[in-house]
Design a protein around this nucleic acid. Structure first.
Lengths: 333, 333
DNA sequence: GTGAAAGCGCTAACAA
DNA sequence: TTGTTAGCGCTTTCAC
């Protein structure tokens, strides 16, 4: 494969001149420019970005770590990031962590060795020490979706507490008092916020908290499905469910359907995030409209900012979320 | 950031020895090894993969080009590739082409400059010349899903013709003669195969082809939705639809629902690929079970093969697909 | 078993 | 405006 030296020889100029034509950052005579351009075509030359990266200490690579690339939420996030950074010539390097802490640290290490210019971490494990170590070594980390105390980096997160609070309040104002929550892992900040909002809302209205109605999930399909199956076997059923993410909402609907319960007649349902095929499924959900594409764009912009200016204070971006009313909640009055 | 030189100095050995400890490919004395390992820890050293790539002419990066990362089919494909190649230390670099030919060529060029070790192209544009040029320059391309004549590289594709034929035959054997097809862009090999199978099956049974029943889609949501809307306004309706991909099947179901037609009572439906939430939606589809995760794994293995052995003849892998019977087809007998 | 040194392909400081 | 050259951080040949 042709190198810059070959081009220089072919065009009878120095490698410096070729580099200048390539990058257009220094003045070059028209004559030299043409000679170089002809040589490039003749040799079918394509610059080696690896060598450039080594010299410039910049790879134009941005790592993206997500727990589950099969969740549309994270794909939209990735697309949001890509839509912003690709304009500046960056490419995304992906890694799925499958919620596995060691896999995650390993990927982080590899991405660091590959000298990605930044990495967006949308993940749920908590290893503040290890991650801070990488940050101190100069790895540029941006956390999205989840906030982990003690990790010293920028964030883009959604306003989980507020949105969850409104969702539960919505149920209560429709006369529900027997409300169950299907929650994610409590090690994750989003789950913590959503649970706290749930409890605060109930307390606000003087509704006692029933431990049987606190269902543990892990934001994935299987676990929440089993929890629901279990719940629906109990003698005292809730009249409403608050599901804390889109995937688990699908499980809730499936479990309800299989138990012969229809929504909202037998069971009301509100969800943090919408399901995949709302148009084809009855009823229309009442849910918190998440917009991970937008979140990705913000993350992308934050990164571009940071990569341009070398100094930048740590930032926290909080995104406000709206509620979309559907017909999945029965009025109990 | 610490370099191999710093480590060598700290450990009082040469950089060569450090490199040997790092890679474990040459004998090193126990004593030297320990000194180096201590120095690495003390300096918090992380090798620079960019420099290594330059020297070794290998990046451990594999490009993945898909038209639409929001389609679960392509995500599963990516996961399949990742599951295989990540074991050997490769990372995936993504690019969504959005069905845009110039964006696609541009991404291919950038990935080539970044010297990815290979690129998996699951895309639908046809630029044999440009792509062959890159291949001739040494870019290692593997095409999946779509076969494009005149591009000289390996393939992993599904047996579209055969599977589509069985699907249409299934409809005919259930007594349908008025069968419409919702097809993708005809510039794509998969669409060509599926359409050919449709026509051949009808012909085989002596059923005339009605041009009004040949609906053009583009494998995306909007276009197929509009085509269906249009079709359902006609005076003569088909009794069955053959949808040639999962996304368009969702549109077909949505359009039918909105037109007040129920499946299979008013309209039978078979699909190439399943929809997203089969459990929640009535009826269960009769469809061709695609397995892009498996296809991704094969692609990954093919790439690993090729990257190990330097010489390898061009290969074509064809994946056989099974049909899954559901209850979306009414028996007309 | 170990070290010195060349060189991967490029950029940029410096000199002309 | 152009050329020369050092050097980015690593691997690997060659000599010891």
């Amino acid at each position: 494969m042709a190198t810059i030296k070959d081009v220089a020889k072919e065009a009878r100029v120095s490698t410096a001149t070729v580099s200048r034509v390539l990058n257009g950052n220094y003045p070059v005579s028209q004559d030299a420019k043409e000679k170089v351009e002809n040589a490039i075509k003749a040799l079918n030359y394509h610059p080696n970005a690896v060598a450039r990266s080594l010299k410039q200490n910049k790879t134009y690579l941005i790592g993206v770590l997500v727990p589950d690339i099969a969740n549309p939420y994270f794909m939209d996030l990735a697309r949001g990031i890509e839509s912003v950074v690709s304009v500046e010539g960056y490419n995304l390097v992906f890694g799925s962590t499958d919620e596995d802490a060691s896999k995650e640290m390993n990927l982080l290490r590899v991405l660091n060795e590959k000298r990605v210019d930044a990495v967006v971490v949308a993940t749920r494990q908590e290893k503040p020490d290890k991650i801070n170590e990488l940050i101190n070594q100069g790895l540029n980390i941006l956390m999205v979706d989840t906030y982990i105390k003690d990790i010293k980096c920028d964030y883009v997160v959604e306003d989980d507490y507020d949105a969850a609070y409104r969702l539960v309040k919505h149920l209560i104002e429709h006369g529900h008092t027997q409300i169950a929550i299907v929650n994610g892992l409590l090690s994750v900040s989003t789950s913590q916020q959503r649970l706290r909002a749930y409890k605060d809302a109930l307390e606000e209205y003087g509704i006692p908290i029933n431990d049987k109605f606190l269902l543990q999930g892990d934001y994935n399909r299987e676990c929440s499905y089993q929890s629901m199956k279990q719940l629906l076997k109990e003698e005292v059923l809730p009249t409403a469910i608050f599901s804390t993410n889109n995937i688990m909402t699908e499980s809730v609907m499936l479990a309800a359907k299989e138990a012969g319960l229809s929504i909202p007649e037998d069971l009301s349902l509100v969800s943090f995030g919408n399901i995949t095929l709302p148009g084809l499924i009855e009823p229309q959900l009442t849910y918190i409209k998440q917009n991970s594409f937008e979140m990705g764009k913000r993350a992308g912009n934050l990164i571009l900012d940071k990569l341009d200016h070398t100094f930048f204070e740590s930032k926290e971006h909080i995104i406000h979320l709206d509620m979309q009313a559907g017909d999945s909640v029965k009025d109990m009055h």
